[in-house]
């Protein structure tokens, strides 16, 4: 895939929506009278790990939520393998920002993971031993098997994040979308999460994560999507994650020294 810079207008894009596990076209979302995301196109590469980066308030999470239909966009469409997202939900697993959850809810960790199986269970399908085993296995993959019986609000931030990743694993999806999975988590959790995500990628799944730590982009991800209200750039880390593009996205908010470090790590 070649790098496409928004500044280089004028060449028609090939419509490669049918192949992409997540393709967004013309997405505009607005809170009140100011668009948070304006006319954004995004084409996620199958089988890759993509980071969505950009400064605070650049519309990273908003883009993801609008693509999933959690927010209603002012304009724009999102497709999974060429079909509308609404018909393809079984292919998608989403890990929300932890803030959106009712932590006081009466539910245990293992119940939360089981929720990942609800779509395949339907309204009344019985939860069988195989389902419980599957939930326990997903919990073990994120290293949380010892906490299965705890109430969800009693865990630390990092532990909660791992439980939500386990729920996403239980969904057996093809496309994993994560909203700031590393925000406010401890180093051990960050390591555990990234290794799970890499194993998903190695199994042929597609991973997209909103990410805010520029220093780990090159280490963790294959592709990068840079946004600041509009799409700034999109492509493999080696090509799109450059100081010049970051300067455009972050403006003066990025110190030169920081840029050099990124340039070196990405280079």
């Amino acid at each position: 895939m070649s790098i496409s810079l928004a500044a280089e207008h004028g060449k028609p894009l090939v419509d490669d929506r049918a192949q992409s596990p997540l393709a967004i076209r013309g997405m505009t979302v607005s809170y009140g009278q100011k668009p948070a995301v304006f006319s954004v196109d995004m084409t996620v590469r199958a089988g890759a790990m993509t980071a969505i980066i950009g400064p605070n308030g650049a519309g990273k999470s908003t883009l993801l939520k609008a693509a999933l239909g959690i927010l209603t966009p002012l304009a724009g469409t999102a497709t999974v393998l060429g079909k509308p997202v609404a018909t393809q939900r079984h292919r998608i697993a989403y890990v929300p920002q932890r803030a959106s959850v009712d932590w006081d809810f009466p539910t245990r960790v293992i119940d939360v993971v089981l929720m990942g199986l609800y779509p395949q269970l339907g309204l009344l399908g019985r939860i069988r031993a195989t389902h419980r085993a599957k939930a326990a296995e997903c919990l073990a993959r994120v290293g949380m098997e010892d906490f299965a019986q705890r109430q969800i609000g009693q865990l630390s931030g990092g532990q909660q994040q791992r439980v939500f990743l386990a729920r996403a694993l239980a969904q057996d999806a093809e496309l994993y979308l994560l909203d700031e999975p590393f925000a406010g988590v401890d180093a051990a959790t960050e390591k555990a999460i990234i290794s799970v995500l890499k194993s998903l990628r190695d199994a042929g799944k597609t991973v997209v994560a909103v990410h805010h730590d520029l220093s780990t982009v090159a280490e963790y991800f294959d592709d990068v999507f840079i946004i600041n209200t509009r799409r700034i750039a999109e492509g493999p880390v080696a090509e799109a994650f450059t100081p010049r593009i970051l300067q455009e996205a972050y403006g003066g908010r990025l110190a030169t020294a920081q840029m050099d470090a990124i340039g070196a790590s990405a280079g």
């Binding site: 939520k65 999933l68 239909g69 959690i70 939900r89 998608i92 697993a93 989403y94 929300p96 959106s100 959850v101 009712d102 809810f105 539910t107 939360v112 929720m115 609800y118 779509p119 269970l121 309204l123 729920r167 969904q171 979308l177």
Partner: peptide, 16 residues
């Protein structure tokens, strides 16, 4: 199940 999920985590409920 839908009641439980959407009460606990509305964002997740919508994505499924």
């Amino acid at each position: 199940r839908p009641l439980k999920i959407s009460t606990f985590d509305e964002g997740f409920a919508r994505t499924v």
